[in-house]
Amino acid sequence: QEPLTASRLAAAPLHEQKQMIGERLYPLIHDVHTQLAGKITGMLLEIDNSELLLMLESPESLHAKIEEAVAVLQAHQAME
């Protein structure tokens, strides 16, 4: 599978850009948090596309964001 570059992304309509990023992010997140992958991916997709592209290139920053998202999700669920 070819890397998702900023130029390939920019060529897609806005509503497809997040979907394209999500399709790449989901399997990476699923490897770490199988049960929460859908929610975590949805949370991370709220981040700017440029930052999401950097995260796809950098497993370390991706995993840091995943842990951040899990903490936010748990805090959110505790409030419900």
Binding site: P13, L14, H15, G22, P27, G38, G42, M43, L45, H76
Partner: peptide, 26 residues
């Protein structure tokens, strides 16, 4: 809870249009 945040975050599933897109490109 006022009930408005229960559906947050919008979950993403491969091959399914992400519902969070409604906020970005209605």
């Amino acid at each position: 809870s006022n009930g408005s945040s229960i559906n947050w975050p919008p979950e993403f599933h491969p091959g399914v249009p992400w519902k969070g897109l409604q906020n970005i490109d209605p």
